[in-house]
Protein backbone atom coordinates (compact mmCIF):
# COMPACT_ATOMS: atom_id res chain seq x y z
CA UNK A 1 0.00 0.00 0.00
CA UNK A 2 1.71 3.19 -1.12
CA UNK A 3 -0.98 5.81 -0.83
CA UNK A 4 -4.73 5.72 -0.50
CA UNK A 5 -7.84 7.75 -1.05
CA UNK A 6 -9.62 8.79 2.13
CA UNK A 7 -13.41 8.71 2.29
CA UNK A 8 -15.54 10.35 4.96
CA UNK A 9 -18.90 8.94 5.99
CA UNK A 10 -21.17 11.85 6.90
CA UNK A 11 -24.88 11.31 7.58
CA UNK A 12 -24.50 7.79 6.24
CA UNK A 13 -23.16 9.03 2.92
CA UNK A 14 -19.63 8.26 1.87
CA UNK A 15 -17.74 11.02 0.08
CA UNK A 16 -14.20 11.31 -1.21
CA UNK A 17 -12.30 13.53 1.20
CA UNK A 18 -8.70 13.46 0.07
CA UNK A 19 -6.67 11.68 -2.59
CA UNK A 20 -3.17 10.19 -2.54
CA UNK A 21 -2.86 10.16 1.21
CA UNK A 22 0.37 8.62 2.51
CA UNK A 23 0.18 9.54 6.18
CA UNK A 24 -2.67 9.10 8.65
CA UNK A 25 -2.11 10.06 12.27
CA UNK A 26 -4.95 9.61 14.78
CA UNK A 27 -4.76 12.31 17.44
CA UNK A 28 -6.37 13.12 20.75
CA UNK A 29 -10.05 14.10 21.00
CA UNK A 30 -11.11 12.14 17.92
CA UNK A 31 -8.94 14.05 15.49
CA UNK A 32 -7.24 12.52 12.49
CA UNK A 33 -4.41 14.16 10.59
CA UNK A 34 -4.13 13.30 6.91
CA UNK A 35 -1.21 14.15 4.67
CA UNK A 36 -1.04 13.58 0.95
CA UNK A 37 1.92 12.88 -1.29
CA UNK A 38 1.50 16.45 -2.52
CA UNK A 39 2.12 17.82 0.96
CA UNK A 40 -1.49 18.75 1.55
CA UNK A 41 -2.46 18.36 5.19
CA UNK A 42 -5.87 18.16 6.77
CA UNK A 43 -6.97 17.70 10.35
CA UNK A 44 -10.55 16.78 11.09
CA UNK A 45 -12.78 15.25 13.74
CA UNK A 46 -13.22 11.64 12.69
CA UNK A 47 -12.62 8.04 13.61
CA UNK A 48 -11.11 5.40 11.36
CA UNK A 49 -13.81 2.95 10.32
CA UNK A 50 -11.94 0.73 7.90
CA UNK A 51 -8.62 0.33 6.12
CA UNK A 52 -9.06 -1.39 2.76
CA UNK A 53 -5.42 -2.04 1.97
CA UNK A 54 -5.91 -3.85 -1.32
CA UNK A 55 -8.25 -1.17 -2.67
CA UNK A 56 -6.12 1.66 -1.25
CA UNK A 57 -9.11 3.06 0.62
CA UNK A 58 -9.34 4.54 4.09
CA UNK A 59 -12.84 5.11 5.40
CA UNK A 60 -13.45 7.57 8.24
CA UNK A 61 -16.58 8.24 10.26
CA UNK A 62 -17.26 11.92 10.89
CA UNK A 63 -17.32 12.81 14.58
CA UNK A 64 -19.74 15.57 15.34
CA UNK A 65 -19.27 17.80 18.35
CA UNK A 66 -21.16 16.77 21.45
CA UNK A 67 -24.21 18.85 22.09
CA UNK A 68 -24.33 20.43 25.50
CA UNK A 69 -27.66 19.43 27.02
CA UNK A 70 -28.04 22.97 28.36
CA UNK A 71 -27.60 24.30 24.86
CA UNK A 72 -29.85 21.91 22.95
CA UNK A 73 -32.92 22.80 20.94
CA UNK A 74 -35.86 20.91 19.46
CA UNK A 75 -36.83 20.96 15.83
CA UNK A 76 -39.44 19.31 13.64
CA UNK A 77 -38.89 17.84 10.19
CA UNK A 78 -41.75 16.58 8.00
CA UNK A 79 -41.10 13.12 6.58
CA UNK A 80 -41.17 14.29 3.00
CA UNK A 81 -38.40 15.23 0.67
CA UNK A 82 -40.96 16.85 -1.55
CA UNK A 83 -41.64 20.08 0.36
CA UNK A 84 -45.26 19.20 1.01
CA UNK A 85 -47.73 16.34 1.26
CA UNK A 86 -50.59 15.47 -1.05
CA UNK A 87 -54.20 15.19 0.16
CA UNK A 88 -54.82 11.67 1.39
CA UNK A 89 -51.14 11.00 1.88
CA UNK A 90 -50.00 9.83 5.31
CA UNK A 91 -48.57 12.89 7.06
CA UNK A 92 -45.80 12.28 9.56
CA UNK A 93 -42.89 14.19 10.94
CA UNK A 94 -40.00 13.69 13.32
CA UNK A 95 -38.97 15.72 16.32
CA UNK A 96 -35.26 15.99 17.00
CA UNK A 97 -33.20 17.37 19.83
CA UNK A 98 -29.69 18.63 19.36
CA UNK A 99 -28.05 21.70 17.95
CA UNK A 100 -28.08 23.22 14.50
CA UNK A 101 -29.70 20.23 12.78
CA UNK A 102 -27.25 17.87 14.47
CA UNK A 103 -29.25 15.45 16.58
CA UNK A 104 -28.00 14.42 19.97
CA UNK A 105 -29.29 12.29 22.82
CA UNK A 106 -31.69 13.30 25.55
CA UNK A 107 -35.02 13.39 23.78
CA UNK A 108 -37.61 11.53 25.86
CA UNK A 109 -41.26 11.19 24.85
CA UNK A 110 -42.44 11.56 28.46
CA UNK A 111 -40.98 15.06 28.72
CA UNK A 112 -42.31 16.35 25.42
CA UNK A 113 -45.78 17.35 24.25
CA UNK A 114 -46.79 18.00 20.67
CA UNK A 115 -49.84 19.68 19.18
CA UNK A 116 -51.46 20.09 15.80
CA UNK A 117 -52.99 23.48 15.12
CA UNK A 118 -55.59 23.73 12.40
CA UNK A 119 -58.30 26.32 12.02
CA UNK A 120 -57.44 27.78 15.42
CA UNK A 121 -57.97 24.42 17.18
CA UNK A 122 -55.09 22.72 19.00
CA UNK A 123 -55.10 18.95 19.34
CA UNK A 124 -52.45 16.93 21.21
CA UNK A 125 -50.65 14.36 19.10
CA UNK A 126 -48.80 11.26 20.27
CA UNK A 127 -45.06 10.80 20.01
CA UNK A 128 -43.38 7.51 19.24
CA UNK A 129 -39.72 6.93 19.93
CA UNK A 130 -37.71 5.96 16.86
CA UNK A 131 -33.96 6.08 17.08
CA UNK A 132 -32.84 9.43 18.43
CA UNK A 133 -36.02 11.11 17.24
CA UNK A 134 -39.70 11.07 18.12
CA UNK A 135 -42.16 10.36 15.36
CA UNK A 136 -45.51 12.12 15.03
CA UNK A 137 -48.17 10.60 12.80
CA UNK A 138 -51.00 12.89 11.80
CA UNK A 139 -52.94 10.44 9.65
CA UNK A 140 -54.14 11.18 6.16
CA UNK A 141 -53.63 14.80 5.23
CA UNK A 142 -56.47 17.11 4.34
CA UNK A 143 -55.90 19.91 1.86
CA UNK A 144 -54.56 23.02 3.57
CA UNK A 145 -51.92 24.23 5.99
CA UNK A 146 -51.19 22.53 9.29
CA UNK A 147 -49.04 23.98 12.02
CA UNK A 148 -47.36 21.53 14.38
CA UNK A 149 -45.43 22.47 17.47
CA UNK A 150 -43.71 20.62 20.29
CA UNK A 151 -42.51 21.74 23.67
CA UNK A 152 -40.24 20.44 26.38
CA UNK A 153 -40.56 22.03 29.79
CA UNK A 154 -37.79 22.09 32.38
CA UNK A 155 -35.11 24.47 33.61
CA UNK A 156 -34.85 25.45 30.00
CA UNK A 157 -37.96 25.52 27.85
CA UNK A 158 -37.63 24.41 24.25
CA UNK A 159 -40.19 24.87 21.50
CA UNK A 160 -40.21 23.66 17.91
CA UNK A 161 -42.66 24.65 15.20
CA UNK A 162 -43.22 23.80 11.57
CA UNK A 163 -45.86 24.61 8.99
CA UNK A 164 -46.82 21.70 6.76
CA UNK A 165 -48.58 22.14 3.47
CA UNK A 166 -50.99 19.46 2.29
CA UNK A 167 -51.88 20.05 -1.33
CA UNK A 168 -50.65 22.93 -3.43
CA UNK A 169 -50.52 26.68 -3.48
CA UNK A 170 -51.83 27.46 -0.03
CA UNK A 171 -50.20 30.87 -0.08
CA UNK A 172 -51.52 32.89 2.78
CA UNK A 173 -50.69 34.81 5.90
CA UNK A 174 -49.62 32.84 8.93
CA UNK A 175 -51.01 33.33 12.42
CA UNK A 176 -48.88 32.75 15.54
CA UNK A 177 -49.90 29.81 17.71
CA UNK A 178 -49.10 31.66 20.94
CA UNK A 179 -45.75 30.27 22.08
CA UNK A 180 -43.84 32.29 24.70
CA UNK A 181 -41.16 32.82 22.06
CA UNK A 182 -42.13 32.24 18.47
CA UNK A 183 -40.77 32.70 14.97
CA UNK A 184 -43.61 33.60 12.62
CA UNK A 185 -43.02 33.71 8.86
CA UNK A 186 -44.53 36.71 7.11
CA UNK A 187 -46.52 34.49 4.75
CA UNK A 188 -46.65 30.89 3.72
CA UNK A 189 -45.58 30.49 0.13
CA UNK A 190 -43.37 28.21 -1.92
CA UNK A 191 -39.95 29.50 -1.10
CA UNK A 192 -37.08 29.03 -3.48
CA UNK A 193 -33.35 28.87 -3.08
CA UNK A 194 -32.15 32.43 -3.70
CA UNK A 195 -35.21 34.05 -2.10
CA UNK A 196 -35.19 36.34 0.90
CA UNK A 197 -37.22 34.75 3.68
CA UNK A 198 -38.93 37.16 6.05
CA UNK A 199 -40.22 36.45 9.54
CA UNK A 200 -41.01 38.08 12.87
CA UNK A 201 -39.97 37.01 16.36
CA UNK A 202 -42.71 37.32 18.97
CA UNK A 203 -42.25 37.18 22.72
CA UNK A 204 -45.56 36.55 24.44
CA UNK A 205 -47.24 37.71 21.27
CA UNK A 206 -45.32 40.97 20.93
CA UNK A 207 -42.52 41.72 18.47
CA UNK A 208 -39.10 41.18 19.97
CA UNK A 209 -36.54 43.70 18.72
CA UNK A 210 -32.81 43.01 18.79
CA UNK A 211 -33.13 39.23 19.01
CA UNK A 212 -30.46 37.19 17.27
CA UNK A 213 -31.94 34.56 15.00
CA UNK A 214 -29.58 31.79 13.99
CA UNK A 215 -30.09 29.75 10.85
CA UNK A 216 -28.59 26.66 9.33
CA UNK A 217 -29.28 24.20 6.54
CA UNK A 218 -28.45 20.64 5.47
CA UNK A 219 -24.91 20.18 4.34
CA UNK A 220 -23.49 22.98 6.44
CA UNK A 221 -20.03 21.97 7.59
CA UNK A 222 -20.04 24.45 10.42
CA UNK A 223 -20.60 23.24 13.94
CA UNK A 224 -22.25 26.60 14.59
CA UNK A 225 -24.85 28.51 12.62
CA UNK A 226 -23.58 29.96 9.34
CA UNK A 227 -26.30 32.63 9.33
CA UNK A 228 -27.13 35.09 12.09
CA UNK A 229 -29.45 38.06 11.78
CA UNK A 230 -30.86 40.51 14.30
CA UNK A 231 -34.52 41.48 14.38
CA UNK A 232 -35.34 45.13 13.76
CA UNK A 233 -37.61 47.40 15.79
CA UNK A 234 -40.67 45.57 14.50
CA UNK A 235 -39.19 42.21 15.52
CA UNK A 236 -38.64 41.30 11.88
CA UNK A 237 -35.64 40.02 9.98
CA UNK A 238 -34.92 38.33 6.71
CA UNK A 239 -32.47 35.70 5.54
CA UNK A 240 -31.20 35.05 2.04
CA UNK A 241 -31.61 31.34 1.34
CA UNK A 242 -28.33 30.05 -0.02
CA UNK A 243 -28.77 26.30 0.28
CA UNK A 244 -31.18 23.60 -0.86
CA UNK A 245 -33.26 21.68 1.64
CA UNK A 246 -35.16 22.66 4.74
CA UNK A 247 -33.81 25.51 6.85
CA UNK A 248 -33.78 25.71 10.62
CA UNK A 249 -34.24 29.06 12.37
CA UNK A 250 -33.56 29.30 16.09
CA UNK A 251 -33.90 32.07 18.65
CA UNK A 252 -33.15 32.17 22.36
CA UNK A 253 -34.42 34.62 24.93
CA UNK A 254 -33.58 33.97 28.55
CA UNK A 255 -34.31 30.32 29.29
CA UNK A 256 -36.50 29.82 26.23
CA UNK A 257 -35.29 28.52 22.87
CA UNK A 258 -37.70 28.35 19.98
CA UNK A 259 -37.13 27.00 16.48
CA UNK A 260 -38.97 27.14 13.21
CA UNK A 261 -38.33 24.74 10.34
CA UNK A 262 -38.81 26.17 6.88
CA UNK A 263 -39.85 23.34 4.58
CA UNK A 264 -38.67 23.75 1.01
CA UNK A 265 -39.45 21.71 -2.07
CA UNK A 266 -35.85 21.88 -3.25
Amino acid sequence: MCEANVYLVRDGVEELLMEKVDRVVPGADDTVMLESVFGERRILKARIRELELVRHRIVLDEVRPQVDADDAELWLVPDTGHGHFHPGEEVSLTLWKGKGMRPGPGLAAERVEAFVVRGGQQVAVGLQSEGQGLRLSLGQGEDGLVTVYAREEGDRRCYAKVIIEVGHHHHQGVEPVGLPLEIVPRTHRHVHLGDHYEFTVLKHGRPLAGATVRATYPGSRSAGYPVRVATDESGSARVFLTAPGNWLFSVTDGDVTSTFTLVKGF
Binding site: G131, L193, F266
Partner: peptide, 24 residues
Protein backbone atom coordinates in the same frame (compact mmCIF):
# COMPACT_ATOMS: atom_id res chain seq x y z
CA UNK B 1 -34.93 2.80 13.23
CA UNK B 2 -35.21 6.27 11.80
CA UNK B 3 -31.87 7.73 10.80
CA UNK B 4 -31.60 11.47 10.74
CA UNK B 5 -31.42 12.84 7.25
CA UNK B 6 -32.41 16.01 5.46
CA UNK B 7 -33.56 14.73 2.12
CA UNK B 8 -33.37 17.04 -0.80
CA UNK B 9 -36.42 16.25 -2.80
CA UNK B 10 -36.79 16.23 -6.52
CA UNK B 11 -39.94 18.21 -7.01
CA UNK B 12 -42.34 17.01 -9.63
CA UNK B 13 -45.28 19.29 -8.89
CA UNK B 14 -43.55 22.47 -7.80
CA UNK B 15 -41.80 24.76 -10.22
CA UNK B 16 -38.07 25.21 -9.94
CA UNK B 17 -36.44 28.59 -10.24
CA UNK B 18 -33.56 28.99 -12.72
CA UNK B 19 -31.16 29.02 -9.78
CA UNK B 20 -32.58 25.76 -8.45
CA UNK B 21 -32.30 24.15 -11.88
CA UNK B 22 -28.66 25.19 -11.97
CA UNK B 23 -27.98 23.88 -8.47
CA UNK B 24 -29.70 20.58 -9.24
Amino acid sequence: MVEYSERQGTPVCMSQSPLEKAVQ
